[in-house]
Design a protein around this nucleic acid. Structure first.
Length: 259
DNA sequence: GCATATGTTATGAA
DNA sequence: TTTCATAACATATG
């Protein structure tokens, strides 16, 4: 599930559910999601503190605490999510860590596959040093610079978090489809006009998806068709092609996105 | 059993 | 040096 819009929604979950409330208890149900910190280490670092305003960079959620305390870093891999519960709600099999705040709220880190997880750091800047500019924040100039020296496909550049942070497989296909660009085009082959179109489509697609809290599976979006049988382009009705680009399943319209 | 899945990363090859 | 495909991670589904 989680790409930039999903993580933006998780940030809102954390801010709304736990914002500025004291953390009464931290329960680690599965230490397999913890990285570089033990269950006891996480508990002692967080309990008694209150969450400050959370923020997002790319697919990372940064959850600082009020006062002089470490910062919680969360990544959701392919199946993670953050949900706001009542402490009395029945746990699901994939609840991995719970943060009980106040007396009636509990934020749960839930994740089926445990591909990523939770970190604790004193230096968020350093922890995210390998990340490129956020896809929602990047300027047109910086976007050009990020793509300028890429020798691979445009899709692999968009997916590379060191180049641009926040896009995943669904968003990359959606944006390329809207920009009328074939995913296997060399990034360096794009004209200035094409880069401009791509930048604008990326912005509008992301803003729309953030409003929806996810990449919406609407029928007017490519994403709403890619997993259906005999998928057709929602714009022109041509049968979509499903191939492999940059190692990922890729949906594209041969008529709207010629090579 | 096989292939697929919205993510990241180490590895060896090109 | 860069980039690619691949496998690995852990789990579910078709």
């Amino acid at each position: 599930m989680p790409e930039l819009p999903d993580v933006a929604a998780f940030r809102d979950v954390l801010a709304t559910c736990a914002g500025r409330r004291r953390i009464r208890s931290v329960e680690v149900l599965d230490a397999g999601v913890l990285h570089g910190v033990s269950a006891e280490g996480l508990r002692s670092a967080l309990e008694g503190h209150a969450f400050a305003t959370p923020r997002r960079h790319g697919k990372w959620l940064l959850a600082p605490l009020q006062g002089d305390a470490p910062i919680l870093l969360l990544h959701f891999g392919m199946t993670g999510e953050l949900v706001c519960c009542n402490p009395a709600d029945t746990p699901t099999p994939h609840d991995r860590v719970t943060f009980t705040v106040g007396h009636d709220r509990q934020v749960r880190y839930r994740d089926q596959r445990k591909l990523q997880g939770i970190w604790l750091t004193d230096d968020a800047d350093n922890a995210l040093a390998g990340q490129g500019p956020d896809a929602l924040e990047i300027s047109r100039t910086a976007f050009d610079a990020a793509l300028a020296d890429r020798r691979g496909s445009i899709k692999s550049a968009l997916l590379n978090q060191a180049v641009l942070a926040g896009l995943g497989n669904l968003l990359a296909d959606e944006i390329l489809w809207r920009a009328h660009l074939h995913p296997a085009r060399k990034a360096s082959s794009l004209t200035s006009t094409e880069r401009d179109r791509l930048y604008r489509r990326m912005g509008s697609t992301l803003r729309s998806a953030v409003r929806s809290g996810r990449v919406p599976p609407r029928t007017s979006w490519l994403t709403g068709h890619r997993d259906t049988d005999a998928a057709r382009c929602p714009r022109c009705g041509t049968r979509l092609h499903l191939t492999r680009v940059a190692g990922r399943g890729t949906a594209w319209c041969p008529r709207c996105q010629p090579p």
